[in-house]
């Protein structure tokens, strides 16, 4: 099944959490360019957590530290739901993340569009 067909059937939904609004907007635009539907972006863990009670994203791009704290509780919840996680941060510790979330991908800031696209398409 080709990507276009998948997009036509139902666009995969990507939850974006990023507290730097410029970066968030940039991410949103990029992800939409890649052909996904964006939920968010959210600057806080709490706002994102509220959303996923109603909507189940297919994937999530998460900045590690958000305005109201670290993203891990949310990540745990998403991981528990089977959502693929892509961590996006300036000071993310790859080893720590891959130990905690073995299936998750990591993208360093500033964003490398190719890497991000690969990370998302692998899901």
């Amino acid at each position: 099944m080709s990507l276009t067909q998948a997009a036509e059937d139902r666009k995969k939904r990507v939850l974006v959490c990023e507290d730097e609004h410029i970066v968030a907007l940039d991410l949103k635009l990029l992800v939409e360019e890649f052909g996904y539907e964006v939920i968010g972006p959210f600057a806080t863990v709490s706002s994102a957590a509220r959303i996923i009670e109603r909507e189940r994203p297919d994937m999530a791009i998460l900045d590690v530290s958000l305005k109201d704290g670290e993203v891990y509780p949310l990540a745990d919840q998403l991981d528990g739901m089977g959502v693929r996680l892509v961590f996006h941060s300036g000071h993310v510790n790859d080893a720590e993340i891959s130990e905690r979330y073995p299936g998750a991908a990591c993208c360093q800031k500033p964003v490398n569009t190719g890497a991000l696209q690969d990370a998302l398409s692998e899901g």
Binding site: E20, I22, V23, D26, L27, H91, K109, P110, V111
Partner: peptide, 16 residues
């Protein structure tokens, strides 16, 4: 952290 953030912002700004 700040420099990284700055780079991200600049990079975002450039793309936007």
């Amino acid at each position: 952290h700040r420099v990284k953030n700055m780079f991200s912002i600049i990079s975002g700004m450039v793309r936007i």
